[in-house]
């Protein structure tokens, strides 16, 4: 077949398209993490894979990045999850941050990514990681998960209360402010729901003491503390938290009710 001008034109067009798709992009671990942070998981995963074997790259960091992005590469398939598991398993030996995070994400995969999930294996893994006292806030968020799983496991109010109280000692393993705060707040909420107002209030107060920075969480927590304190007749705590709420979150659907509650508390009883 003669190589006619038409064919040459078509070939040039095809080459242009191919070349255009291979535009040079910044390829570095930082850029890969930036992409992951921006929810661009497919792009991030590709960069992590492209960095494999490159000189000067921390291979453990790279492998970890590839693994966690596999969890969200689209479409999410059992094969990608399996790839993530394989990579994470290679990282668990050692005591560095990547070993800890790899253990955490293996537990996450057991908890929520497998069909069917493996909650018992996940629980054991979270517990083991907590007992290591890593001081890593992300790893310590496993305590929140353990409390939530305990809440779900109970089938009646009494066993629910017991299951939740059994998780309280986990707080001793939490070295970070974030870890303690989130654990106390979640446990507190769960205990209030289970009807144990006194212990629930203690936990919420402990969580608040660590410092809640997210406004949506803070206002909810303050109202829950104030209400629990009011119902359990701890008037000073209730009044304090109603006041705090009104000062900081005056514009809220609950403000009117909170004002009324505060007035009731501040009105001397006959």
């Amino acid at each position: 077949m003669p190589f006619t001008p038409t064919l040459r034109l078509l070939a040039a067009f095809a080459f242009f398209v191919f070349a255009a798709s291979a535009i040079a992009k910044e390829v570095s671990l930082q850029s890969a993490w930036n992409l992951a942070e921006a929810n661009l998981f497919n792009d991030s995963n590709k960069v992590f894979r492209d960095l494999k074997g490159q000189p000067g790259i921390d291979e453990r960091e790279r492998a970890f990045g590839e693994a966690v992005t596999y969890l969200n590469v689209q479409p999410r398939t059992p094969q990608n999850i399996a790839r993530a598991q394989e990579l994470l398993k290679t990282l668990t030996s050692g005591e560095d941050m990547y070993a800890q995070l790899a253990g955490f994400y293996l537990a996450r995969i057991d908890e929520d990514y497998l069909t069917p999930p493996e909650p018992e294996r996940a629980k054991a893994a979270y517990l083991e990681l907590l007992q290591r006292r890593t001081g890593n806030p992300l790893v310590e968020s496993g305590a929140v998960r353990l409390a939530l799983m305990a809440e779900l496991s109970a089938s009646n109010p009494e066993s629910l209360r017991e299951a939740l109280l059994a998780t309280r000692p986990l707080a001793q393993n939490l070295l970070t402010r974030e870890g303690r705060r989130d654990f106390h707040l979640n446990l507190g909420r769960a205990l209030l729901k289970a009807g144990d107002l006194d212990t629930g209030l203690e936990e919420l107060l402990a969580g608040d003491a660590e410092g809640i920075t997210r406004p949506l969480s803070e206002r909810g927590a303050w109202v829950a503390i104030a209400e629990a304190a009011r119902v359990t007749d701890k008037k000073e705590i209730a009044a304090k938290y109603y006041r705090k709420f009104l000062e900081k979150y005056g514009r809220d659907t609950r403000s009117f009710t909170v004002e009324l509650r505060l007035k009731e508390l501040e009105t001397p009883q006959p």
């Binding site: 969200n72 689209q74 479409p75 999410r76 398939t77 059992p78 069909t115």
Partner: peptide, 13 residues
Amino acid sequence: FFMWGGGDTKEFI
């Protein structure tokens, strides 16, 4: 064959 919400996220089921 996917759990798909119409966006870019989908999970094979």
